[in-house]
Nucleic acid binder design. Structure first.
Lengths: 194, 194
DNA sequence: CGATTTTTTGAATCATATCAACGTACGTGG
DNA sequence: CCACGTACGTTGATATGATTCAAAAAATCG
């Protein structure tokens, strides 16, 4: 229990046994089945979830009901509608499970408590957000500046473990194109190599 | 000197005079003229810049030499190639001034020093990055999910002070379309309202 | 095996980019 | 203060390329 969470944590910030105790007392475990929602648009996001095992996705819905995947989260990643979590306004994103998953949950009040009372938790959070920020900046740049081919290829290079585990149409959604177009992009790539 | 910086800081995290002294001793001031580079692709980004006055932009260049604006920064914002700053690898982005500007600079070593020796600086940094993360997530979502019209309109609603001060083709670049297309989008919007 | 989900393919359509030209505003130097 | 040059925005014609809709083929699941 909590092993992936603390592996991740101590790789970034070492902890004494007491600190680990303190943090662990603020965590809880949640299991969630494939296709189950962790968060629905309109609800307030009350927790940050760390993935111990499994895979989730966060996505928005446009006016026509189309899904747009904002983020995948597999082992070692966290997922949450951060804006809703921080402001307590209704979520604009949905989160559901792509596989049966085990999550470590941190509530808003625990998060606040640890931020102010456990310096290492704050340091860890800063590193976590910084990493997420940098990854998203790269993605934004490739969405704006790169061709479909290279967007797909960077995704595959960066997240091969995700690519293996999610259907292709979700990758299409993540990189911002339709499943049909992605299928054709893949054919173009294959024929350029063959 | 440093007033915009500390206004911003203390609005998020109050400081004692001693703390302010400590932090201020790690800052320096830099003036930069319109069109001047603060950072060029390939150089290592050695500082974070806070804008006291003026306006800058961060952008990438694609294979055909096209500019893609990643970020604007006016008074109260910070700007930097964070990835290069943190990893000390060569920058992949360029930063230059859109107006004559005054900047408050923090070097990598000062940043590290303050992070470990000044808890409030760490708290401030966490809030700063969190804000930047949330803003970028919203932008990414609108880039993937929204129509050109609503992308333009959200930009204008969110950043009216920037819109007034930068040429239209830079707004086009920021929201990910060509200047010609933006011109036509604006006409469409105008005629739908008239 | 049958049912459902996923991927591929084809054809038509639509939206945006591109290329080229023009008009305008702006700022700089004479 | 004027004139010139440069940067900016608009417009039109055309080309490109991604989406859409429909259907079939392939893969996966119970």
């Amino acid at each position: 229990m909590y092993s992936a969470y603390f592996d991740n944590f101590t790789k970034k910030v070492p902890l004494t046994p007491e600190e680990r105790e303190l943090i662990q007392s603020h965590l809880s475990v949640k299991k969630i089945r494939k296709k189950q929602y962790l968060l629905q648009e309109g609800d307030v996001c009350k927790s940050i979830a760390f993935v111990e095992k499994g895979m989730l996705r966060e996505y928005s819905l446009d006016e026509q009901g189309g899904e747009h995947i904002i983020q995948f989260a597999s082992e070692g990643w966290f997922i949450s509608d951060m804006y809703s979590f921080i402001t307590a306004e209704p979520a604009t994103y949905n989160i559901d499970a792509i596989e049966d998953s085990e999550l470590v949950m941190i509530s808003r009040s625990s998060h606040d408590y640890l931020l102010t009372n456990c310096p290492k938790y704050e340091t860890f959070t800063l590193q976590l957000i910084t990493g997420a920020y940098l990854a998203m900046q790269k993605r934004l740049n490739s969405t704006i500046a790169a061709s479909l081919e290279s967007r797909y290829e960077s995704f595959m290079a960066l997240y091969p473990h995700i690519a293996q585990r999610v259907p292709q149409h979700m990758i299409a959604s993540y990189i911002g194109l339709t499943p049909e177009t992605l299928s054709r992009v893949r054919r173009r790539i294959a024929s350029n190599k063959g």
